[in-house]
Design a protein around this nucleic acid. Sequence first.
DNA 1: TCCAATCAGGTTGTCTGACAAGTCGAAAGC
DNA 2: GCTTTCGACTTGTCAGACAACCTGATTGGA
Lengths: 246, 246
Amino acid sequence: MGINELKKIVRAPRLSEEVSAALEARIARGELAPGDQLPTEKVLAETFGVSRAVVREAVARLKADGRIETRQGAGAFVAQAPKSLNFRFWQGEGPALVELRDIFELRSMIETAVAELAARRRIPEDVSAMQKHLDAMDLALADGSDGSEADDDFHLAIASATHNTYAYRLVEFLGRHFSDSRRLAWAGPGRDGALPEEAQAEHRALFEAIAAGNPARARRCAQQHLRGAASRVGIDLAADLTDDAG
Amino acid sequence: MGINELKKIVRAPRLSEEVSAALEARIARGELAPGDQLPTEKVLAETFGVSRAVVREAVARLKADGRIETRQGAGAFVAQAPKSLNFRFWQGEGPALVELRDIFELRSMIETAVAELAARRRIPEDVSAMQKHLDAMDLALADGSDGSEADDDFHLAIASATHNTYAYRLVEFLGRHFSDSRRLAWAGPGRDGALPEEAQAEHRALFEAIAAGNPARARRCAQQHLRGAASRVGIDLAADLTDDAG
DNA sequence: TCCAATCAGGTTGTCTGACAAGTCGAAAGC
DNA sequence: GCTTTCGACTTGTCAGACAACCTGATTGGA
């Protein structure tokens, strides 16, 4: 019922967000299939009890997400194939452990390949950039501050060394979703343990393999690092991943 | 009416897109650093010579992308680290040919890892699903029809065999943006040549490696298949990718 | 002097009404 | 029967107004 939805939306924090979320839900639920035409902005405004301006902002958001397309004079339609990938890793509390494992695994798949490619393609500028972020992490380790940002930058520098724009963007994308767990690994359970030091050792090994231009070793180091990172948040990645791939 | 037809072809520029692109460029160029406050909507509207509604839509888009954040009463600010969930490959028509190599390369990186994982995890149901799509491609090959859909399904079946939701979704996403070039490989330049047959041979080798549960061979087959696919559209992936990774 | 409450100006969020630009189907004319 | 024209409809844009909210400065008292 539209009325019940309306009641919830009245005087809610961000009207346009509520509307876009409601439309998104309809699409996800299959009520609006790809190719279907959305109700007109006028109808939507009346349905949700908001002005057309709010509806337009909600539509603009979905359009930016690639979920719908609009044609002036014709209407708005559910997009056939979204042009952007929306990994909704978790909403609300946190990810299930199974999902976390999948994510770490995907990350491992990609970053090992990235490390390998970086070892082939890196130029001196890439190496010095990596070195810089590695030093920053050393520093953070020494004074006990948060090195998760340098950690991020280090991995991005590796991705940058592939000289492949899309690989870089994918790593960047995945890294954003990992900022929480990465920060956890820095400031989390192992404050008194040697967890960050362990990670840093892995970082250094990975760095040296890439700097030395050894693709196979870079791959192995990246794999080991990702396994370590996973284990540091309580996930065993090596369960059925024997190391015959290196 | 020649002019009007031309106008039809060249999509009319949306004002809000121009504004958002301009703002995005400013951010990318560093004129607006993370944390900086954007000019007010009023100023932006005057600057670009558009109404505030257009500016708001442009801002809404950047907000949806996570590039900026707004606080009612305070202003709009460049996001510290974009935390968008969107991985947008390109906006508009499609990638430039120069970028195609990067994309094929990324695809190769991912699908080789996917094939390897699929070889470890596949269960009988996965194998029969792959077999089904392989047969469909054989059929399409025999009667000369379009097998690109079965081709898609085959690769998705492999991704599904990893039993990793996110890996599947990533392959699905990449595949969608590759439908054009894949169709090209089927119905394109090699109508009289043996290109589809060549691809099918690669498919079969890949299938058998996964079905046999041989991760290393699956990886090699996937890599060879992607290289073949790239070469079929005129891209040489093996330029600096020696095969010491298998 | 220091601190807290208050106030004023500015900024985003929303509403309303209007017109321009474009689409689509049906009626009108040949 | 076919093409053209027209009109209703939809999205895109504009303008002005008010509400909700934030921020910094002022003001008042301790």
